[in-house]
Amino acid sequence: MKSDDAPMWNDPAEAQYVRELLQAGRQADVNYDVASGLTQHMARVKAGAALPHWARGGASIGTVVAWVAGPIVVAGVVAGVWLSQRQLQPMTSPVPSPAVQPMATPAPAVVAPQPAAAIQAAPSAPEQEPSIQRSNEAGSRKSLRSQAGAKSARAGLGSTGLGSTGLGSTGLGSSAKSHGGSTLAAVEPVRMASTAQPAAPNAAVAHAPSAGVALHDERASARKAIAAEAEQPAAVATDRQPTAAAQRKQESESRLEREMQMLAVAQRVLSSDPARALRLTTQGDKEFPSSMFSAEREQVGLLALVKLGRLDEARRIGQPFLAKYPNAPWSQRLRHALATGRIE
């Protein structure tokens, strides 16, 4: 039996047409424009673009909870009112006594106090209960979240990592965690820590009256939690202080963005205005020598030379360049251009 690791496309036991399909798939290339895409990506990063809706867990999960919990709460309230009325019914139902005058039979006057209390409670219930329940739910959710947050903060992981941002269903959450906390919620721990840690004293206070020793322990843990909370903002403040490293990073990103934009424009105008493309690549070489886009810029410049009819010059520079980069994504196109003098 063939190994699971052996690819089908290379397996002689597979039907010829299956192998052909897979070969076609392996060779297919959508010719994605990386330089242009990277320019867009950097611009989006710089602009702080919002994550796609499916990667934003919090709001959508909250919405789902609200949609699910809402009807349940309403159903619960209605059922409660119905049950209370049902229980009251025997009391409110008139006990007809032949001896009693019709005027006396309407028990409402007699039993009014009881139903009134119940009825008074009933209308108020729909007004108060949902809010109370919601606040209780919110409280319990908050405390659960706090506990989870505290745990995950201790573990160095965000509980609202990819797992809870909609990626978790694919198991990506766990995979992302396996990257040592490089989860989507890498931005979350600070927020979670700040919400989680105040909960610790509350929890401690809630349990405090149980016993003297426990009270002592709880207070000690509460003090620790408060101390930790006090430390947290300091850490955040330290993180937010503009440092020389951050400034350097920002400058580096701006330079990278400019370089990519120049390259993207050069590629775009290669056919329509090769002279401009050549100018842009020459300028790029001066501004950004030995950058990560040097080779790609060089090939655009060489194509511009070909397009301008300066084929000898392009070949003189291009041959050693191609020897250096024989298998780059653009090598074949450049090789063809140098050979034929035409750009495809």
């Binding site: 990506h41 673009a49 796609p52 989860t183």
Partner: peptide, 11 residues
């Protein structure tokens, strides 16, 4: 593609 790399960036 942009969405994928934006998430990678946030990660």
């Amino acid at each position: 593609v942009q969405d994928v790399f934006l998430i990678a960036h946030r990660n």
